[in-house]
């Protein structure tokens, strides 16, 4: 799958079936003006796989994650989710940018959880969760509310439905944010450093919810600094540095026996 980039070591344990891959990135480049942030990312994520992406800050992890749901437009390369080319349509050898509502439709199948939660402050926890199902998928409000309450229960906050985000702790807000993303019944969940903005004692409750999700077979790409979580929950681990994938493989292998010196240098500085 990744003959172009020799640095990529088996992200998918030899899975050859393309139908098995939910996310396929092919030589993904991203530049902001003259600054090249992603320098050719190739990877595949299978259905049900939990892939953790680690690396020093500024290595392009978050940018890559934001490319997956087209919050950032790629400057080169291709990216497919669920067999669909993200953000573009290919016709007679030419690429056409998708229209706003077409990109929106693609995104609705991909949940995203942000470092800073980004809950809607003018809506309650429940309001945050039912907003997209009601507005985008036209789910009847009563049905969405019922489902929203189930989701709140699932993330351990059954009694916080009518609370506004500012009345919740960081960990609670992040769990509501996860429930909000799940409400769209996505086939893929993206986590952008979901615990980095939390007080240390609140990290566990968010990781618990994510662990639960993984156990239920959700396909997840998690940008994180939680090496313990990556080792325990991750099916695969990708180490990125300077806009490229330096090393990848099973979390235990990469974390215990890093092959590349940049991986070694990074891991030696990380506590876990």
């Amino acid at each position: 799958m990744s003959e172009k980039n020799e640095a990529v070591i088996e992200t998918t344990e030899g899975a050859e079936l393309p139908s098995d891959a939910l996310v396929v990135a092919e030589n993904v480049h991203k530049s902001f003006g003259r600054l090249e942030v992603l320098k050719g990312i190739d990877l595949e994520v299978r259905r049900g796989e939990v892939m953790c992406v680690v690396g020093p800050s500024g290595s392009g992890k978050s940018t890559f994650l934001r490319c997956i749901n087209h919050l950032e437009k790629l400057t080169a390369g291709r990216l497919w989710v669920n067999g669909e080319l993200m953000g573009f349509r290919q016709k007679r050898g030419r690429l056409y940018e998708l229209r706003d509502h077409e990109i929106a439709a693609q995104r609705s199948d991909i949940g995203m959880v942000f470092q800073r939660f980004n809950l809607f402050p003018h809506l309650t926890a429940l309001g945050n969760i039912i907003e997209a199902p009601v507005q985008v998928n036209r789910v009847p409000k009563a049905e969405a509310t019922e489902r929203g309450r189930e989701l709140l229960e699932r993330v351990g906050l059954p009694d916080k439905a009518d609370f506004y985000p500012e009345q919740l702790s960081g960990g609670q807000q992040q769990r509501v944010a996860i429930a909000r993303a799940l409400a769209m019944e996505p086939s893929l969940m993206l986590f952008d450093e979901p615990t980095s903005a939390l007080d240390p004692e609140l990290v566990g409750e968010v990781l618990d919810v994510m662990r639960d999700l993984a156990r239920n077979g959700m396909t997840m790409i998690v940008v994180t600094h939680e090496m313990g979580f990556a080792r325990e929950v991750g099916d695969s681990l990708v180490f990125m540095d300077d806009g490229a994938i330096v090393e990848s493989g099973s979390p235990v292998e990469v974390l215990n026996d890093p092959q590349h010196e940049r991986t070694q240098a990074f891991l030696s500085k990380v506590l876990f």
Binding site: D100, N118, L119, Q135, R180
Partner: peptide
């Protein structure tokens, strides 16, 4: 971040 969160949920620009 508010716009991004809404975009990620699949909401259109007008919405």
């Amino acid at each position: 971040g508010q716009t991004e969160a809404a975009q990620a949920l699949g909401m259109s620009r007008g919405k």
